[in-house]
Nucleic acid binder design. Structure first.
Lengths: 340, 340
DNA sequence: CTGAAAGCGCTTACAG
DNA sequence: CTGAAAGCGCTTACAG
């Protein structure tokens, strides 16, 4: 081997052929004689040769690089979705180019960088803030898939962008029906932060779900956005209303945890006196016996990657499709029939 | 703008200068007149221009790309470490090129690809299997940092590789001293899978820590590697020994969870009759009041990235350094003084 | 301080 | 089925 690292030219010399032919073998093109192909492949394996990402990328050819853009990894949500993406991308022999931008302007800039091409084959945007829809999708954009986010309308080219979202409506119906079936009549929803789409949806679907039942009273309480806030606000609610409602429907498991702690502090039995439900199904939920909605974070990542590959595999397909994932209700012990 | 995407040549034309000068401005080189620099920078901002990763990479210049190689994301461990890496890399304006290889041969192949250059500036290897040390580090390798893994010796060039590991010895001493201080005399360690370095270390340090105390009996039980297995094995232990020991020291929180469930199933009070400790400090630990060792996964990622940048910032520095992270003991309610 | 030229390692038409 | 040539977008000496 010469001093420089192995490249198509060196490989061509060793195989007594041209770099064009080596390139053809590399990309599994059909028009190569079996003998030549075998000779080149043997050398590729012998030297564990991998074509340069940069050389290939510069020509505009596919690099197997999939862009992943997230707001941040704090939540654990992005990390779980990433696991799903990894599973699918790894299966295809691809690589992930990950960027994270908490700030929406940076996020948009990175999205544009991915979409403009010359970097990744396609990209997955994890939970972008809604401000992104004020920007336009360009006709020549690389395929992009939205994860945990859905374009609000067809405008600005967003109509042809694929997306993976969760079916909050059906899940919330399941929660409410289950609670009503268990005898609960006064339901209180501790909603999530108002700038989160899921929070808006769950809040709306909670009211709608309850309205389908006669004699059921539904209320929404804002501000309980974390475990700590939920603890305080649950106590406050109980003090103000002279006791708990029949059920607290928490925006997520952390909020439910805060509620459970508040109820425990006041010696109010769950589910004896009040039912509590969560959302997400994090590890502690199963430990605490929390009835909750299972959020399939890993599957969201997998589906997003599959959606992206659908478009990558068929370049004529210019339009992505929306995928709506069902979320199963996990009935555990915090939602038994109240004894009053 | 012409049809093709903006590049150094277009930018040079617009700025009435040459692509060499544009390149100098891009890389913040000193030898550019203030006027020219300002003119170029204005255009860069105006068009939100980002130099091509591929063009830059092909010349061998730094791309800001940091390679991350993991065995898999299943554990959640890699995901948390990744969060730390992201925090640090994002701060430096870099990007992550992530690959995951459950199989050791693939892992080694990817490591070599990163190390050979022409792809990333440097790489972080998360928890590689020990078989990797059978391979040699080459003199011209790009900087690499080991995370949650330490070279067993100086051989094959591994002596100059930086690493981030956790101080299992001190942490295990803390656990054992705490339990003995609480009155426990018979300690049982439910160890982790034998091919995990941390499992080997904790097992060994558990025995050593106990041996420092007179009258303390320490045992190791194998096979309890998951919550489910721990449940079964804890029950089995109790049946065989006519009751629990004074303390179960679990390899991690999931194992501790299995133990707690087994004790609950048998109606054995914790900490009244037996103490239980975990390791990792996952969310459920604080909920369950589990006394545990806090594993700073995010910090491990941050430290690994910092270590890597130390070498990247100073190319003369050919040798990385080892970092040993302390793990605080979180005393909660599962380790109170046993009442016997 | 500036610019022209070479070259990084590939792929892509094109000609045979 | 094969190869010579051009070119992707940068950076790096080199000459001025």
């Amino acid at each position: 081997m010469s001093g420089k690292s192995l490249n198509v030219i060196e490989l061509a010399k060793l195989a007594h052929t041209s770099k064009s032919t080596v390139s053809r073998v590399l990309r599994n093109e059909p028009d190569v004689s079996p003998k030549t192909r075998a000779r080149v492949q043997r050398l590729i394996r012998k030297y564990d040769y991998h074509p340069s990402l940069f050389g290939r990328g510069l020509t505009g050819a596919s690099t197997g690089l999939i862009g992943v853009l997230g707001r941040w990894m704090e939540s654990g949500f992005a990390a779980e979705v990433l696991r799903g993406i990894v599973a699918e991308v790894e299966r295809r022999g691809g690589h992930l180019l990950c960027s994270f931008a908490p700030n929406i302007d940076d996020y948009v800039s990175m999205w544009r960088k991915f979409a403009a091409g010359g970097q990744v084959d396609g990209a997955i945007l994890i939970a972008p803030a809604n401000e992104i829809f004020a920007h336009s999708v360009k006709p020549g954009d690389r395929p992009v898939v939205l994860c945990a986010c859905k374009p609000p309308d067809e405008k600005r080219g967003w109509g042809k962008i694929g997306s993976v979202t969760i079916d909050n409506r059906t899940a919330m119906n399941d929660v409410v029906d289950h609670l009503v079936g268990a005898g609960c009549r006064r339901l209180v929803h501790l909603s999530g932060a108002p700038d989160i789409l899921d929070a808006q949806e769950r809040r709306r679907f909670f009211m709608k779900a309850a309205a389908r039942h006669r004699g059921v009273k539904a209320d929404v309480v804002q501000g309980a956005w974390t475990r700590e806030l939920a603890y305080t606000i649950a106590l406050e609610y109980i003090n103000t209303h002279g006791g708990p409602p029949d059920a607290f429907v928490a925006f997520n498991d952390s909020v439910a945890l805060g509620v459970l702690e508040a109820l425990q502090a006041r010696g109010i039995p769950v589910p004896g006196k009040v039912a509590v439900t969560g959302w997400d199904d994090i590890l502690f939920a199963s430990y605490a016996g929390l009835t909750t909605i299972h959020l399939p974070m890993i599957r969201m990542g997998e589906e997003a990657a599959r959606l992206l590959y659908e478009q990558l595999d068929d370049p004529r397909r210019k339009v992505g499709r929306p995928v709506l994932l069902k979320m199963p209700l996990k009935v555990r012990s915090t939602s038994g029939r109240p004894r009053k």
